[in-house]
Design a protein around this nucleic acid. Sequence first.
DNA 1: TATGAATGAGGATTCATTCAT
DNA 2: AATGAATGAATCCTCATTCAT
Lengths: 216, 216, 216, 216
Amino acid sequence: MGRTYMDCDTKKQIILRTATKHFANAGFDGARVDEIAAEAGVNKAMLYYRVGNKEALYEEIFVETIGGVLSQIEKEIRDEDSPEQQLTKFATVFAGSLNNNPFIAPLILREVASGGTHMNDQAIFKMNQIRTLLATILKKGEKKNVFRPSNPLLIHILLIGTLNFYSASASIRNKLSENVNKKVNREEDKKDFILPISVVATEVVNLVLNSIRINN
Amino acid sequence: MGRTYMDCDTKKQIILRTATKHFANAGFDGARVDEIAAEAGVNKAMLYYRVGNKEALYEEIFVETIGGVLSQIEKEIRDEDSPEQQLTKFATVFAGSLNNNPFIAPLILREVASGGTHMNDQAIFKMNQIRTLLATILKKGEKKNVFRPSNPLLIHILLIGTLNFYSASASIRNKLSENVNKKVNREEDKKDFILPISVVATEVVNLVLNSIRINN
Amino acid sequence: MGRTYMDCDTKKQIILRTATKHFANAGFDGARVDEIAAEAGVNKAMLYYRVGNKEALYEEIFVETIGGVLSQIEKEIRDEDSPEQQLTKFATVFAGSLNNNPFIAPLILREVASGGTHMNDQAIFKMNQIRTLLATILKKGEKKNVFRPSNPLLIHILLIGTLNFYSASASIRNKLSENVNKKVNREEDKKDFILPISVVATEVVNLVLNSIRINN
Amino acid sequence: MGRTYMDCDTKKQIILRTATKHFANAGFDGARVDEIAAEAGVNKAMLYYRVGNKEALYEEIFVETIGGVLSQIEKEIRDEDSPEQQLTKFATVFAGSLNNNPFIAPLILREVASGGTHMNDQAIFKMNQIRTLLATILKKGEKKNVFRPSNPLLIHILLIGTLNFYSASASIRNKLSENVNKKVNREEDKKDFILPISVVATEVVNLVLNSIRINN
DNA sequence: TATGAATGAGGATTCATTCAT
DNA sequence: AATGAATGAATCCTCATTCAT
């Protein structure tokens, strides 16, 4: 019956969602299969039956997570947009993803920190597609003579690194801000710590545009 | 005899150095005390005798690592330097630290990803001092009328996030570049992936300076 | 199927029985979870799966053990018995329990010696019920004018302390008797050491009765 | 120098006193050599140098403790006393020892519970001497026709078991009394729990005397 | 005599994974 | 498909004891 299929899909989705949270919060080694199964409301053996093992579970959620970001960006960027518009969208859509799903940034940061230990080919492929997408935008701008030549990787890291770091650092920034406000009780300082990520995205992309844009 | 003291210091230093590597590579949960002890060439019980436990070991190496970066920056930045010089030094010295010690960036990224789970007060304090140092440079520039008003946290994240991400992503970038070169065998692309971090630092700081510098 | 349930119960029962022996023989700190699991024929992880941890295991067997004694006494003492009969039964049934289960006395003595370090509320409650039961018998005797007023705690300790001490001291008494008989080889002395606990119970309870009984 | 010797003796005494406390409170397996050394203010290696090992330390304090009780009883009981006086003194002096040194009872109870695992020949010898002493008093009473024939071991256990149990159970009785008083708030009940051990000794010995004394 | 350092052999507990039903 | 039970291989940590000086 369709119902059974739907139930299955749903259950799998719940497992993946729960696993994403645990892997993001605790890392691959810190996450506990028991806890994931319990929180997802499925029997542990069932989880293995459906997913394979911890490694496979991780790979699945990682690809899914990165894939989500990629498809979001691809969906929003139109061919008819100007390179400048496309670059801006790249940053803001990425930031939007991080904002909607707070587990993306920790997952990426941990994976980067570990040198991609747990990334499979699919994950590498999708990460690369994101990078390629940005490079294409920049090349297109160069061709249209609206962007100066630039190092795409540098700009990629600038955007992705900054936004991921900002997104993931929310709770550390909280700690730091508490630490600050104990001593100096300036309201302005406190405000600086709670900048929305959309603003960060805009600022960073403007910085980049100011640098590579060719004005006439 | 001084030699005895030196041996002790050395042994603890070896433990800390080895632990730093393992915690950076595998994270708190992924690191194995047994492996750290074995690689450091000390008895496991000895490690506990000197350090306390895994948590304490981690805290110690984290504070030491962050403290090293901080003191390096503090040492290099002179009062007599112009705000622009100071800002540049902030970025390049930080980048230099990451370059000399490849374990700094992964440690920071993981800590950020975990929301600072394993950071003690000392660590928070030192991280905050780095942030404060940058903010002070920016404020000074504002006062001297050479910098436009800016959000210090934003610039902090921009510099720190980008550089940490770049430093830690070395091996992932390798994977991506291999992936790229399999298909398209352009030498130029390959070059883009092996940019030295000092260059990244210079580029990023120039981006920032172009944005906040007041020209006359 | 019922069989599955029975198997489970049986396995847990085996664990508890084995643990009781080890805790009685070696105390909480002296007992080894590994040995208990091995002797019970279960995997160590299984033991944790079923019981929780060493502390919980101990608490469980202690409550079970004390509970067994209590329910035995409660079962044997009838309302229609005279206070004198009830007091006698209290002592003899308690002694019978100690006789049937040689681990009760060591468990109690160790717990008393440690100040109840490992006793949970349930254990305290059950021990108290035993005490209350005796006190009730004595009060009833007073009301019926067959017992003189007495300190119930004193009589409690007299009965319980003596019987526990006697039960647990079996092997030490053996050592002492060997020691005695090496020098003086009197058969009568040897006999004194192997008095059955039921006799001890009768003697002690008669002592008490002689003291508190009101004769007409 | 005599001073050095005195210092040594003193230090050894401190070690033994501290060890007695720890072995009484935690048992042989629960006691920690580190803690004993630390609390005694001596280096752990020094403790081993002076004492040998944990086993030897335990044996030493046990013999010393039992020996103290024995010599106290021997000192107080006079040949010229009547058997009745001697029996009374036996109980009260033993109770006095337990009262002065709260570690005696737990040590004995634990040793009894473990079947004398850690008792050496000396300890057995001294415990036996206490038993012999009582038996001698009883025999003497029989010969003088003031005591009925009795089982000396039984009376020994009655006195020693009760008093040890009472002494060691102080903190458990506290727990029970708290438990009682939560529900029934009768002052009299509370009083029953804090009977001085000297009273217990008198009561028990009177019970025994009433039973074995020949009245004319 | 005195001590900080060192260690081997455990000891409690956990965890990913599989099995039996 | 689903689950409670089972397990081997760690994993962190401790502790009595010894060593080097």
